[in-house]
Amino acid sequence: MTAAKAYIAAVGTALPGAPVDNQHLADRFGIDADWIELFIGTKTRHFAVDLETKEQQHTLADLAAQAGAKALAASGLEPEDIGFVVLGTATPDALMPATVNLVADKLGLDQLPTYQLQSGCAGAVQALDLGYALVSSGLHRNGLVLGGDVCAKHLPLDQDFASMPASELVNFVLFGDGAGAAVLTSEPVGARLALHRVLNRLTGLGREPGQTVEWFGANDRDSGKQPIREDYKAIEGAVPVMTGEVVWELLDELGWSDTDLDYLLPPQLSGRMTERIVASLDLPGVTEVSCVADTGNTSNALPFMQLARLLERAEPGQKAIGVAVESSKWIKAGYALEKV
């Protein structure tokens, strides 16, 4: 195998506020805590919005800057060493200015290119893909890649939850808020996690979206449209299959066998769904690296939270594959790593 052209030197993450457990959600929304546990399998999550006052207490820029600062500090690099910043998110703080530029400002970064990618659960890997291209091409020696979402601000908290359709109600227990960051380098420094390959592919031609998040303007905010919709049955059927396709394509392209693989960072829709995905892959001897049961589905923050856990346990020579699947218009994404 040829030497890697990009490395992850450090990872940082940020979660807002204290964890919110299922009983708290059940009391607040008048739903069954046992239903949350059985159907979703997520135990806690963090929200950037206070569930009682409905006040937003953390912005995406706040959380991404916290994660970015942690990653920079852990990498040993200075702000002036960073050649670019890229952010993947489905929920930017505003249409303009781009949230990535607010994050750069908070981190003291200036006079460098910035990029913001609008995407759901695959956005973090798309950001990693762009960062990999910028570093591996020799255009930049180091860069900061970010991913995160603040989903709670899209959820109306003054609804009649007893009459809410399941396709909308699920979003109040499925998602959490957070951000993550990774410092990419052209040389193996810091955590020395070689990034061998990033896969990023739209596969949604002719397919109905599995998830829709509305972005209301001044003229349609009272339209009565459901702000977030999930076709959970379609997602349940498609995501395990797409995950397997990503894993085997990456293994084949790199010349790795399934016995070479030490860790799997699977898609993190929910605790229960992750269990199904991992079981469907049937990779004996491979250790699952997951966090969704504790953090909730933080969308574009999740891959970085998994990476942070991977760095705590990976030994030199061990290999990992991470997968993210976006159901909004069906994007499969993944990346292959090796501790060097």
Rank of each mutant, 00 (worst) to 15 (best):
L337D: 03
L60R: 15
D93R: 12
E236F: 11
P79D: 05
G317D: 09
P227F: 06
E214D: 06
N101W: 11
G271F: 11
K153M: 14
F47Q: 02
R28Y: 01
G317N: 07
P19E: 06
F304I: 01
V100S: 06
P113W: 11
H140E: 08
V85T: 13
C121V: 01
L51G: 04
A71R: 08
V246Y: 00
H140F: 13
F216W: 08
A18M: 03
D262Y: 04
L261Q: 09
R141N: 09
E208S: 13
S167K: 15
S137A: 12
D62P: 04
W330F: 12
G206I: 04
Q318W: 09
T274A: 02
P156N: 14
G178D: 08
G88L: 03
D294L: 10
L155F: 15
V49M: 00
S167I: 04
L302I: 10
L139S: 13
I36N: 07
P19M: 00
F175T: 13
Q306K: 14
G138Q: 01
L146D: 05
A181D: 04
S327N: 07
A308W: 09
N219M: 11
D260C: 05
N300K: 09
E52S: 14
Q126I: 03
A90H: 02
A314K: 12
L184C: 07
N297R: 02
I228Y: 09
P16A: 04
T298K: 00
V292T: 11
D282G: 00
L157V: 08
I82F: 11
G271P: 05
V239P: 03
W215Y: 15
L87H: 13
Q56S: 02
D105F: 11
T59F: 07
T185M: 06
L302Y: 10
I31A: 11
M242L: 15
L174W: 03
Q318F: 07
A3W: 09
D34C: 01
G204T: 06
I228P: 00
N300A: 14
D93Q: 08
L193A: 01
R201M: 01
A69T: 08
R313H: 10
Q23E: 15
S186G: 15
E52N: 13
D160L: 10
L130H: 04
S280Q: 06
D21C: 10
D282S: 09
H196I: 07
V145R: 13
V85C: 14
L283A: 09
V135N: 01
R192A: 10
T59I: 02
G271L: 08
A124P: 12
T53M: 08
T114L: 06
E315T: 13
L38G: 06
D262Q: 07
L261V: 09
D222P: 03
D110P: 00
G296K: 07
N297M: 05
G237S: 13
M273L: 12
H154I: 12
S328Q: 12
D32E: 04
V247C: 07
R309T: 06
V20T: 06
L311D: 09
P188Y: 12
V323I: 07
Q318I: 00
G41Y: 02
L146A: 04
Q111P: 06
N171C: 09
A122E: 11
D252H: 05
M242K: 08
S270A: 10
D21R: 13
L251Y: 04
M96T: 03
G210Q: 10
L117F: 12
L251R: 06
